[in-house]
Every structure is written in C-alpha cells, then in structure tokens.
Nucleic acid binder design. Structure first.
Length: 677
RNA sequence: GCCGAGGUAGCUCAGCUGGUUAGAGCGCAUGAUUCAUAAUCAUGAGGUCGGCGGUUCAAGCCCGCCUCUCGGUACCA
C-alpha cells in the first residue's frame, strides 16, 4: 500500500438553511472526527476541513419567505451549526463558509482555469423568464398546477404533494413566485461540464483503480457510469452565488454543486498558506467523508472537475455512510423529524460523548440504521455507565482506599497477569486495524473490550478479598488495573474525547499520546492519582420520555397539517369550466404496462366510444379488481403517447392525505356517457 | 421496469478467496460475587443464515427464479 506523508479529510458541507441533526453526525462528522483525532494522536500530519454551504436556490426561497436577505439566512444557520459543532467536539482545523471572499476568489479562479482551457461547452437554451422582475427563474421560483396530481403549488422541479419530479415546462398555469406574473420563455446561455468526456478516465480510475472502496460507493459509481454520463450545467441565472467570471455573464452564478466542493479548497486556503501541500501534492491522501446522497458528486463529478483543472490530486477514498432513521421514520428537516444537535446539547448538557458513542456504535455503515431513544438510554446505562464508567470507578476507588491514591508497585506477575497485560496490546491492535479501515462501529466495540478486560481482571483476582488474606499480592493487581485504566484514557480519546480528558485529569496523566497505547507502565509507581468522580451518569426514564413526547407532538402537528385542505385555486368562468367534457365510463379491461411501476393501460366504455387510457394508478390497484368499476373520465383532453400507447383521456382520481388514490365514482350506477357538470 | 445496496439469534451487527457442531454486543434465564452508579463475573436458552431450485464431496458465502426494505433512474394526462 502506498505511504502518504499527509492526510486531508473533508466533511460534506452542511447546507445553511437549517441546523445539524443526528443523521449528519452519524453519517459524516462523528466518523470523520474519530478518524482525524486518531491520526493526530499518532502524530500524523492531518487536517479536518469543514464549512457551511451557503448558496443555492433553497436559501433564497427561505429568505424571501421570511422577508430577510439570503445573507441573513446563512448568517443565522452558519452560527448555529458552527457553535454546535464546536460544543460537540468536532475538531475542525477550519470551519469556513462559502460566502467568504476567499471562496469567491478560489471558485472564480477554478472556473476561469477550466474556461480558459476549453473544458466547458456553451449551450443556449429556452428557460422561463419573469418579465416584470427582469430575471430568469430557477425551477424553484416557478409554481403551478402539478400535471400529475392536479394540486396547486407544485414547484418547477418537483411537486411536493405527490413527490413527482417535474420539468418547469410541465407545470400547468405557471406563475413566478417573485412577481406573481406569468413567465415567458426566453433564451439564455450556460456553460456545461462535459462529464461524458471524462467517462473513460473515471471508469478506469474507479472501476479498475479503486475496487477497495466500500461496496455501496463502488456499486453506485458503477451504476452511474453504466447509465452513461451527460454534460452538466455549471452556471445558472440567479443573483445569489459566485458570479460567473466571464464577460457578458451578468446575472449568472456558479451552480451550487460546482461551487460547494471548491469550498473544501477555499477553507484549506483560509487555514494555511501551505494549502497546496494538501491539494496538489500526491504524497497527500485526500479523503471525503459524506453521506450516501453525495456519492455521485464526490466520486464522479468533483473528481472530473479536479481532473479537468489538472493540478489537483484526486480522493484516495470516499467512506460514505448510509442514512440514519429516527424512531422508524426517515429524518426530515421540513417535517421537523429529527434530533437537532443544538437542542441535544441543551437537553443533555455535558453528554456529548453519550451521543457520540451511540451514533458510532450504531453507525449506518453498511445499511440504513434506526436511532431510538430507548436504545440511546440502554447504551448509556448498560455500556458506558456499567462497563466503562464502572470499571474506572472501581479501580480508582480501590486505589484510594488501599493506597491513598498512590500507584502501588508491580510485584511478581502470575500467568494470568501476563495474559491480561498482553491482551491490552491485542485490543489496541484490533482497534487500530478497524480505524484504519473506516470500521468505526467495530473500533468502538474493540475499545470497550478494554474496559471489559478490566472488569474481568478484577472479578477474577478479587483484590477486596486478598487484602485480608494475601495483602502482598494486591499492589500488583491494582497496578495492572490502573494501567488498563490509563490505556483506556488514551484508546477512547478519539471516540469519547470529553470523557477521556476527564479520565486523564482524574489519573493526573497529562496529554494523550497514542504511542503509549498498549504500554504496561503508563503510570509510574508512586504516581498520585486524583479523587475519582463518575465519568457517566445513568439516564432515567423521564429524560427519555421528554424526548419521546416531543416527537409525538411533532407527529401530531404534521398530521394536522396534512389534514388541512389546500386553498382554493383561482376562479374560472363557467365558460372555461364548460369546455371540459367529463363523462362517466366503465373500465372494461385493465393491464399493467410492461416495464413500468405505476402505469395501467385501461380500456374504458365512455358511452360515446371505447377508448384506451393510460393511468398512473398501478401502485394502488390490481388490474383484475377494477374491471367493471365506474369512473369519471375527462374525454376531451388532448391525446398523448405514453410508453408507446396512445392515451385518450384522463381518469379522475381523488387523493387522500396519505397520498392514496381513489376513484371518483357516481354514488349510484348511471348510464355510461352521462355528463358530469 | 432497469441499476446499485441490503435481508444472518428478541434488538444492533460480524462472518476472509465456499470447508469441522454459524459468531459478538445488548436483552433474557440461572448461578457466583459485593470493591463499584444493583454496576460486575460465569454459564445457558435462543437461528430451516428472506423463499424455492441448482452447481459441488462440501454453500450463509457461487448460479437461476421469486419476495421484502433503502437509494438512483424511467414513467404518472
């Protein structure tokens, strides 16, 4: 394996439109912090880079909604995020933000280099333009009626009520959210990064060169490469972001996906004038810690950018994690279904390590995992308190009691003593091995085995009995128990930095140094330890119940919201309404459209004729169970070809709050062809 | 539909290029113990390794089909 002189660890930039939650922590920041702390303890040259991602349309929308500027939005969340990371002990060497001047310079330069090298292609395209506000509209700035579910308030990229992803041009009756006017199509020029051009290189580099990447990462890259890469726009029409540094590009900024990863580089520049040692020297190892939603950007898009630029190194590994769920449901910022870090730090003051421990022991390394408060409590009480805290406490209390806090001298070692001392080294070794391979769950379990070893050693040697029958033997036992404790103080430092620090203070040890790990004489004979205090406290049921109640409240609030009917659409005249010809018909035949998930091909007797309609209801109905069903059908909708079938009309469906579709059917049977008016 | 990842004890997960009676932690049961925040230590119960079929002397691991979960992608008049 190649030896590197330096390591640069980047962590996905949190988007500054909300605080950080446990999903972010478990997936990215906790493992990255553990890894970096470990390397630092080993005396390695390593940097941990982070920062807030502050551009992009969602932030401008949030600002508009709250009547403040985008800068206000990002200032607010950047502060919350930065403070909570610091208080939580994520040991960034630099935590920057993409609205800083140095980032604007770095990103502009980066773009300009690629531009000058001819690495972009230029394309004109037609996009919606707001004539009143005099600006092009990003997809998110356009709302209208969803062509799928018919609900108002769908965005140009997605309908939030049915979850369908859309093109802005699909929207019925589009409106600009800026001025409320109807947008017009207008031509605009943008630059594209031709990912397809880099495909052969990426294929070679990943599929041949990095077979050691985690299977989820490797698999997703392969999936994308096999689908074929497309040119991707690097600019867009918006006034919030890094301006495109080219003449005649007024009103255009770098697309946020292009700008954000460059933030890693700007943050490093902000930190040190030697930043090129970390970015442009192939003796440096670049690692990206991310969640699975970011795999494609960090394994395909960003490397393509770096390669196109030419002077940068590429990531050596991208240890991406899966997602963490909360009490069985997906974490969601918009639904407020999350444990927010800044709130946790208040509710569980000085319990940073408990959350760090739980999130590491249950990290979503190979598949999505579930965080439950009950598990949180159990791991604290049964593992941190009972195994780690308890061992530390009993070895220190005994030392105080028998030897007045002075480390007693080692006497003659029994075979069991030697075996136990050797086990320390073995545990350190397997912890290291797990850490080197980004297996943090396994690593923390191994580290805990050291505390288990200590408990077993005390139980087997029983110094509290020997003190009466064989007092000369006890100093050796207590010396060994204390050496195990001292080893724990170092070994657990990357995972539980606050508790490890506290333990070192109790042991009167000084700074941690990984080189001492596995050493059998960390504490010298006669060394005085301090009075012990508890490392971890039990968490009682009521503290857990408070959290569960809060989540229950969120659930109720969300239900209340979805029960509220959408507001009425704008008025239409009777003449407009009467242009629609809605009839009652009967389903004669139904079959699933091959190679689709949602589509049924229906044959309808409309009373006028028998016609074919394709309908997206296959997820809710089996073909055989709807034959004979009476339905309402819009018969004069312009026909459209779907999956090679001409669809002549649209079946009317009512959508329930949970998204379930039901037919709009006459309350008693009527003749086919009856008009609905 | 297609692509990717996953489905192993009640829970959370290990299981290397296929090889003896499938492992760990937590939980549970029983016993021991009291230095310790009733914490600890030992022992034990508990699994047709998602299902069916195949290859092999031998399959949790390889192949085929099916099924469920998560993600991506197509599609929704």
């Amino acid at each position: 394996m190649k030896q590197f002189k330096r390591t640069l660890v980047t962590t996905a930039l949190p988007y500054a439109n909300g605080p950080v939650h446990i999903g972010h922590l478990a997936g990215v920041y906790v493992p990255a912090d553990i890894y970096v702390r470990y390397l630092r303890l080993k005396g390695k040259d390593v940097l941990l880079i982070g920062g807030s991602d502050e551009h992009g349309v969602p932030i401008t929308l949030k600002a508009r909604k709250e009547g403040i500027t985008p800068q206000d939005v990002v200032d607010k969340y950047h502060r919350i995020i930065e403070d909570s990371f610091r208080d939580f002990g994520i040991s960034f060497d630099v935590y920057s933000r993409t609205s800083r001047k140095i980032h604007y310079e770095t990103a502009s330069q980066f773009f300009r280099t690629l531009y000058d090298k001819g690495e972009f292609i230029e394309k004109e395209s037609e996009q919606y333009y707001d004539d009143e506000a005099k600006q092009f509209l990003a997809d998110r700035y356009i709302t209208g009626t969803c062509p799928h579910c018919g609900k108002d308030g769908a965005y140009g990229d997605q309908c939030e009520s049915c979850g369908t992803s859309l093109n802005a041009t699909d929207l019925i009756n589009p409106k600009s959210t800026i001025s409320g006017s109807t947008p017009v199509m207008k031509s605009t020029k943008h630059w594209y990064l031709p990912l397809d051009k880099h495909e052969p290189f990426l294929r070679q580099w990943i599929l041949e060169g990095h077979k050691e990447w985690k299977s989820n990462v490797y698999g997703q890259c392969k999936s994308w490469l096999d689908l074929g890469l497309q040119p991707r726009a690097v600019s867009r029409d918006l006034d919030w972001g890094v301006p495109v540094p080219v003449d005649g590009a007024d009103g255009k900024v770098l697309y946020v996906w292009f700008d954000a990863p460059i933030g890693y580089i700007s943050a490093t520049r902000e930190l040190t004038p030697d930043w090129e040692k970390y970015w442009k020297d192939d003796e440096c190892r670049l690692l990206h810690f991310i969640g699975k939603d970011n795999i494609v950007f960090h394994c395909i898009v960003f490397p393509a950018m770096l390669k196109a630029e030419g002077s940068y190194i590429l990531p050596e590994n991208v240890p991406a994690n899966e997602f963490l769920n909360l009490e069985g449901d997906k974490i969601s910022t918009s639904r407020n279904w999350a444990v927010w870090l800044h709130e946790y730090l208040i509710d569980f003051k000085d319990k940073q390590d408990v959350l760090r421990y739980v999130l590491t022991a249950n990290a979503p390394e190979t598949k999505d995992n579930d965080f439950t408060w009950k598990d949180f409590q159990a791991r604290n009480n049964n593992e941190l308190v009972a195994i780690y805290g308890n061992f530390v406490n009993r070895s220190m209390v005994l030392t105080q009691k028998y030897y007045d806090g002075k480390v007693p001298a080692l006497g003659t070692l029994t075979d069991f003593d030697k075996e136990t001392l050797d086990s320390i080294g073995a545990i350190v070794k397997s912890t290291e091995e797990a850490l080197e391979n980004f297996k943090f769950r396994e690593a923390i379990k191994e580290a805990m085995n050291l505390a288990r070893l200590g408990n077993k050693y005390l139980a087997d040697t029983e110094p509290w009995k020997l003190i009466k029958t064989d007092p000369d033997r006890v100093p050796t036992i207590m010396n060994i128990a204390l050496q195990i404790t001292a080893n724990l103080a170092i070994l657990t430092e990357p995972f539980l930095p606050f508790s490890a620090q506290k333990l070192r203070n109790m042991l009167n040890m000084g700074e941690a140094n990984w080189k001492l790990c596995g050493n059998k004489e960390i504490l010298m004979t006669g060394h005085t330890i301090n009075e012990p205090s508890l490392l971890f406290d039990k968490i009682e049921d009521d503290a857990i119940q408070i959290q569960l109640n809060r989540l229950e409240q969120t659930k109720l609030a969300n239900q209340a919201e979805t029960k509220t009917a959408a507001p009425a659409k704008a008025n239409v005249s009777y003449d407009e309404f009467s242009t629609m010809d809605i009839r009652i018909g009967t389903i004669l035949e139904a079959e699933k459209v091959a190679k689709t998930k949602k589509l049924l091909k229906l044959k309808i007797d409309t009373g006028i004729d028998q016609r074919t309609v394709v309908s997206g209801i296959a997820e809710y109905f089996q073909p055989e169970e709807i034959i004979g069903q009476q339905v309402s059908i819009l018969v004069n909708l312009a026909p459209r070809n779907i999956k090679g079938i001409d669809s002549q009309g649209m079946i009317l469906m009512a959508e329930d709050a949970d998204g379930k579709l039901v037919f709009v059917t006459p309350s008693s049977k009527v003749k086919n062809g009856s008009e609905v008016k």
